[in-house]
Design a protein around this nucleic acid. Sequence first.
DNA 1: TTTCTTACA
DNA 2: TGTAAGGA
Length: 129
Amino acid sequence: MHDFFTVNQLAEELGVTARAIRFYEAKGLIAPRRAGTTRVFDRHDRGRLLLVLRSKRLGFSLAEIREYLDLYDADRSQLSQVGLLLAKARQRIAELEQQRRDLDQTLAELHEVAREAAEALAAREATRG
DNA sequence: TTTCTTACA
DNA sequence: TGTAAGGA
């Protein structure tokens, strides 16, 4: 279909602003080539951008994403890239599981508070009659 | 503190 | 386009 894309085409397709895409470029996450002054994105750039957005959704920072993407260009075997992915994924899993424990504890406390409050209310209504 | 947007030269 | 400033 399309071999090349402009920032605005990619922005519309991916649901982000062109400014955000330029921001990612400024941060070194992507490096589309130029035709004069205008950016030309190919499928490779598009793939990297998709990976950036997916990684963002998983909660990784732009710095972490760049770390990962840099290894794609640096390491032929991509062993270090996969290794980093494993480490980062495990770290992220640990973070989320800790958040879940915190959330569970907060929920348990709130359930207890609600239970006691409902109990007190029921007792009051029983004595009144 | 990071990730963007807005605004201006 | 680069960057300062500011919101979330």
